[in-house]
Design a protein around this nucleic acid. Structure first.
Lengths: 193, 193
DNA sequence: TGTATTTCTTAATCTAGGTTAAGATAATTG
DNA sequence: CAATTATCTTAACCTAGATTAAGAAATACA
């Protein structure tokens, strides 16, 4: 079997059945949000997590120079939450808002009873967290060792649909570079073809 | 209650009881390693995880320019594994080796039966993974938004004991900068006091 | 204990990507 | 659909950190 990182990644992350895996039904609330609506403000104390049924969310920080840094995008089938703050019972460090009109399942990680899940659900749950860890491992290694152009190419391979749904400056923000730098990189890539 | 990130982080990560949380006993092997021994080579297919009873391990990649990038350190009470590769059933991307003579509990993540754990163990397990995610979230945000000096200061706050146990060039590698850059930063900090 | 090897520092030079600025496209909104 | 607002591009200039090099200090080793 030939190893294809992108296929593996996509397969692993596109969990259509996550809704069931989490055992969500009665307690979870489904809510509609408009593009631009903010689900979570930095500084808030919250233990909520958001499962995206439809649409697109993102989480981001704003640094001391008022610069926005996108931590992640969450499209259909993804889960988004400020794990760091929640795990350490701290006020949120991330904003979470909508990049498209979205349908979101909201549930409370605190009242989430692991003991109530079936063995299979538990295993899938563990995989879910492990997969998030895996994605972050890759991201850290890329940030430490790869150029902006390499990171951009990997982004395109890993999330080929996203560029159609978000402005380029947000890709730049996710990659950790400025919109100008990304524009230059795209110019270079276009020229070299 | 005043929020103290370092205290919170230390408390959360220093899991002396992890050994029990994982339900390790009969199946897990305890092994001794000498400083410099390699537990895992890049390219190997492995589903092993390593729990550090005593000593110090690290994981790292080598990029296409032969440059080493340390992904993490694991001292007493920590768990280390190449989650990304294991989760996607790929050959290891990380080397794992010993920075000190170490005593390590080795267990296989694949044969790890989640269903056999107690409810409490499960919950702690979930927290364990969530905490790893939290640490990586912080690391990504720091890499995207903070200067090398800021990242170094945060490192010292978060892991105050590590600088006594590892050469500076490894701190630099972990921070994503060169040893020369770290040396310069330390010079500046020393001067400004 | 002396020699070799690794580590750390300092300094000169280089470069990827940041900053600033201004014009060109494209998308929203009244 | 006109006008405002956001996005993207290009280019000149700047800076944090990389690279290269060489010496000093510390460690390991024979």
């Amino acid at each position: 079997m030939i190893y294809n990182p992108n296929k593996a990644l996509k397969h692993a992350l596109k969990m259509e059945n996550l809704y069931e895996v989490l055992g969500l039904d009665s307690k979870a609330k489904i809510k509609q949000f408009k593009k631009g609506e903010i689900l979570q403000l930095e500084g808030e104390l919250s233990s909520l997590a958001y499962y995206v049924k439809k649409g697109l969310l993102r989480s981001y920080t704003i640094d001391n120079k008022d610069k926005e840094h996108i931590f992640m995008f969450a499209s259909e089938g993804w889960l988004i939450a400020d794990i760091e703050s929640q795990e350490f019972d701290q006020p949120a460090e991330l904003f979470i808002d909508c990049l498209e009109d979205s349908e979101v399942v909201i549930f409370d990680r605190k009242s989430f009873k692991i003991a109530n899940l079936t063995g299979d659900q538990l295993k899938q749950n563990a995989h879910l967290l492990a997969r998030r860890t895996a994605v972050l491992q890759r991201r850290v290694i890329m940030l430490m060792s790869a150029s902006a152009k390499e990171r951009y190419n990997r982004f395109l391979e890993t999330y080929p649909e996203l560029p159609n749904r978000i402005p380029q400056r947000m890709i730049a923000s996710y990659l950790g570079i400025t919109p100008e730098a990304l524009s230059k990189i795209r110019g270079e890539i276009a020229k070299s073809k």
